[in-house]
Design a protein around this nucleic acid. Sequence first.
DNA 1: CTGTCACTTCAAGTGCACTTGAGGTCAAGT
DNA 2: ACTTGACCTCAAGTGCACTTGAAGTGACAG
Lengths: 128, 128
Amino acid sequence: MRDDLLDIGEVATLTGLAPSALRYYEEQGLVASEARHGLRRRFSREMVDRLRLIACARRAGFAVKEIARSLDMGLDSAGLRDRLAAKADRLDADIADMMRVRDGLRHAVKCEHEPFTSCPEFKAILNG
Amino acid sequence: MRDDLLDIGEVATLTGLAPSALRYYEEQGLVASEARHGLRRRFSREMVDRLRLIACARRAGFAVKEIARSLDMGLDSAGLRDRLAAKADRLDADIADMMRVRDGLRHAVKCEHEPFTSCPEFKAILNG
DNA sequence: CTGTCACTTCAAGTGCACTTGAGGTCAAGT
DNA sequence: ACTTGACCTCAAGTGCACTTGAAGTGACAG
């Protein structure tokens, strides 16, 4: 088996992130790629996992710094669990919002009202 | 009953949006406040509803221009329903993502692993 | 008459998350 | 030996969504 270290291009395709984004994340302290082969960054499989997590959190609306904070303080510093719980709650609220919008949209698709924004049912869904 | 037109400050408190954001939305064509009392914008109740919808869509991750497009083409132009359906699908994907992150976080809160990011269960939830 | 207050315009500034471009390095293939 | 390709750094640029600041307006209270 080879040395199990990937270069940035491979990591990019595995994670769906652009190489420039990976460098940016490194600069922001989200990932460490200490290992280098000459100039080239080498990423471990663990880093790929970490990056997938980061990508997921980004899609979920977390800011880069926010993710950095939660990933850094590895120790169970008093606040960490609280902050994670708070983030989960925030997500619940966001999810609820999105589900309402989604249901509103699905209604709009088959709604007769013109424009759909004035449909009472549509409004009711949004203010759910 | 008074003339039922609200000024920007009232609309701001009703919608939770900053006055500057309301002016920005107007500039972007999301809302019309044609009516003016002197210099001052007067918003109708309908506009307040529309703004609430916009705020909701923004929280759901839609771009301002995207919202403008969906709200503008009031006519059932061939594409509208399709685009709304596509947006709903996109939301479903985003929601799924967020639910995974949320569940991961909730697990992390009561997880023994240090750091939680290396917990297999945590990983399983995220890739679930 | 004079504040004060909530609004107005317009241009410029902010913060985030990257992206792009110029110029350079390095290993491998022809 | 030379080119190609994938990488590198660093500074500057981009796009979005607002926010801020300066200078002004108009109505109303004291």
